[in-house]
């Protein structure tokens, strides 16, 4: 087993401000960035705040930015850095800092609440839902999401523009809209809710310029842009810009 001393810079501070602090810290074979942060807590900075839970890339708690790249600290191996390299760990930039590496991600909970829930189909009791595998497999990809919010943090629509936050739900929750719109049993349309149109009107789908950074950072490897956002844009076109569908809805509205 070999070990060495690495140079770490870790952002320390709170809502009122802060800066990078320097540390020399021991690194052993097979360790990940989160191990080193824990060693710092144990040996040099007992009050260093960090959110984590599973250390297995499954709880989505330990999101941060390592050398400027949004990542899960527990899934970032130290072996990807050379021994001489300084490793800089900062909190996610898009969300307000609470303390050190811990950010306030409540933006995401607000956005989650804004997506109307699954609408149960009429006349089918809860235990009677039957769905074919091929009808649910698209949603199954989206349900691999561990809600680490790295995609929300990286998306330039809100990362660089705080003012867009009220209008834009972000990739994670647009994907949720797509999931429900593709759900074989969701009865939103019958209840008068057009999910595809609302993605554009209420959740800011038009802000996304499909530049795929959400897909690049997703630790679950979900093809967010190709399989959720672009299909959702196409569904919105069906609802809003397809002359035949538009004409149909005009006629139906007149009949009401």
């Amino acid at each position: 087993m070999s070990s060495y001393t690495a140079h770490f810079k870790v952002w320390r501070g709170d809502a009122d401000g802060g800066g990078l602090a320097d540390y020399q810290v021991e690194v052993n074979d097979g360790e990940v960035v989160l191990d080193i942060i824990h060693r710092l807590q144990a040996t040099q900075a007992a009050d260093l705040a960090v959110r984590w839970n599973c250390k297995a890339g499954k709880c989505g708690s330990c999101s941060a930015e390592v050398n400027g790249r949004p990542r899960l600290m527990c899934m970032t191996r130290m072996s990807v850095f050379s021994r001489e390299e300084t490793v800089t760990v900062t909190p996610m930039r898009t969300f307000p800092v609470i303390r050190d590496l811990v950010t306030d991600v409540s933006f995401n909970y607000t956005k989650a609440r804004e997506v109307p829930a699954f609408v149960p189909p009429q006349g089918v009791a809860a235990g009677e839902y039957r769905m074919a595998q091929q009808d649910v497999e698209r949603s199954q990809e989206f349900r691999k999401c561990i809600e680490c919010f790295l995609c929300q943090n990286t998306c330039h629509v809100v990362r660089d523009h705080d003012e867009n936050k009220p209008a834009f739900s972000g990739p994670r929750f647009l994907m949720r809209v797509a999931e429900l719109d593709m759900h074989p049993l969701d009865a939103a349309a019958e209840a008068g809710l057009d999910r595809a149109a609302s993605a554009q009107d209420e959740h800011g789908l038009g802000y996304c310029n499909i530049t795929k950074c959400c897909t690049e950072v997703c630790p679950e490897g979900i093809h967010i842009t190709d399989n959720a956002l672009i299909p959702l844009k196409e569904r919105a076109v069906d609802r809003k810009y397809d002359p035949l569908v538009w004409l149909g809805s005009k006629i139906r509205r007149r009949g009401q």
Binding site: E65, G206, T211
Partner: peptide, 17 residues
């Protein structure tokens, strides 16, 4: 817009598509 992922973009305003 963006120049690369997690790299700040040089525009003051952004309205996408």
């Amino acid at each position: 817009s963006p120049p690369a992922c997690a790299v700040a973009e040089p525009h003051a305003k952004y309205t996408g598509e």
